[in-house]
Amino acid sequence: MIAISHLDKHFDRLHVLKDISLTVQTGEVLVLCGPSGSGKTTLLRTINGLESIDRGSITVDGKTIDPKTSEIRALRQGIGFVFQQFNLFPHLSVIDNITLAPRKLKGLTREAAEAKAMQLLDRVGLRDKRDVHTDTLSGGQQQRIAIARALAMEPPVLLFDEPTSALDPEMVGEVLAVIRELAQDGMTMLCVTHEMGFARDVASRIIFMAEGAIVEDTTPAQFFTAPESARARAFLQDILGH
């Protein structure tokens, strides 16, 4: 589904991604974790072309991702992206946030797009927020709407960039529950997160990154019980507490 090979990226002199190779099969749920500054968010953003790359290649469904080409627009329609800061459109109502892309990009009628959007609102448990203005919603609700907005384009892959990091602790659960359900439905997903409990339950693979490189690519069971590298052990100790 996704194939990344020998990817290198610099921010000026900083070598943020070092010779990354990674393959993701349909239906897999990858959790990307690692200390901050390890390049996991940057890696995620290269997959839908929000970041350019210096060397190497990325293909999604066999098609090369290159932000400089105009094909990137069509490819992005098939890659849902959920941001840490939600990034809902504040000038639109909830329903219009969800229907904007299907209407303008897929040519759906307003009725068809709204019918689909209502199903998605049901799925994220926010049917009654249909006509509400987005800035009246809590962070957790905004993030669930953002997930519905991404799903509205029916992408085969979803990318999550720390979807719960900007949330108050009591709202983390409701967002993770939605993502968990998507995983159970067989959605292919890559998720950058510090929620290790979620990673252990939901991930089919854990990608542990440090200093721009993939240090471990393993199963959750292996990663949480017997991490191979000293870096991963230190990371787990820090994040899981004592």
């Binding site: 929000l50 627009r73 990034n87 892309a101 953002a146 991404a150 384009m153």
Partner: peptide
């Protein structure tokens, strides 16, 4: 970024 990610030009 949110708009580009949805596939808008």
């Amino acid at each position: 970024e949110a708009s580009l990610s949805l596939g808008f030009s």
